[in-house]
């Protein structure tokens, strides 16, 4: 009987907590690996022509299938995004296995929105820097968000800068 009473007291507290979401403590804190990420996402080009670099960057985004959502040349900003398929073979196989074992249908990743912001800014001497940050949201077959993440894979950024370097006929130097 006492247990029930305690439960009656505790239950509302849980419910109230469910109504409030709090921001993680480190969300706006510079992480030790911030510098590493900055290096990964930034290249320096031997040119003072910021606009030319920005135009070339927009071209690469288009090559990669991004649509331009937003731009502000005066601040060196281009924002692009693309909606793509997010179905992964391993997840499909897993879902089939679970269904075969009588576990019912399991939602699997279906669609994703990939967003990229490309920023140019004056560098040291006669150089201009370009930094790109990429993130994605993944929705599953139940229409729920299953992943929200920043892209931190080095190969993706290297690939982007190789393409950009070719387009502007300039070397993309690490900072």
């Amino acid at each position: 009987m006492k247990k029930i009473k305690v439960l009656l007291f505790i239950l509302p507290m849980f419910c109230v907590v469910a109504c409030v979401q709090t921001i993680p403590k480190e969300a706006l804190q510079l992480r030790p690996e911030s510098l590493e990420l900055r290096k990964l996402q930034t290249r320096s080009f031997e040119t003072k022509d910021e606009k030319q670099l920005l135009v070339a960057g927009a071209g690469i985004l288009q090559d990669l299938g991004y649509n331009i959502d937003e731009s502000e040349t005066k601040l060196g900003v281009i924002v692009g995004s693309k909606d793509r398929d997010a179905v992964e073979a391993a997840q499909v196989a897993g879902a089939i296995m679970i269904a075969a074992l009588g576990g019912g249908s399991v939602p699997i990743d279906k669609n994703q929105k990939i967003r990229a912001s490309l920023i140019t800014f004056p560098g040291k001497g006669k150089t201009t820097n370009l930094r790109i940050t990429i993130q994605r949201i993944v929705w599953n077959t139940a229409g729920q968000i299953s992943k929200t993440q920043s892209i931190e894979d080095p190969e993706i950024y290297q690939d982007f800068f190789t393409k950009l370097s070719k387009a502007v006929f300039l070397d993309a130097n690490e900072i």
Partner: peptide
Amino acid sequence: LRTIIATLQDLGFVIDKADE
């Protein structure tokens, strides 16, 4: 404004909009 953009990128943000 440019420094704010750079700081946001350092903090792991993707820029949505900017207007000078």
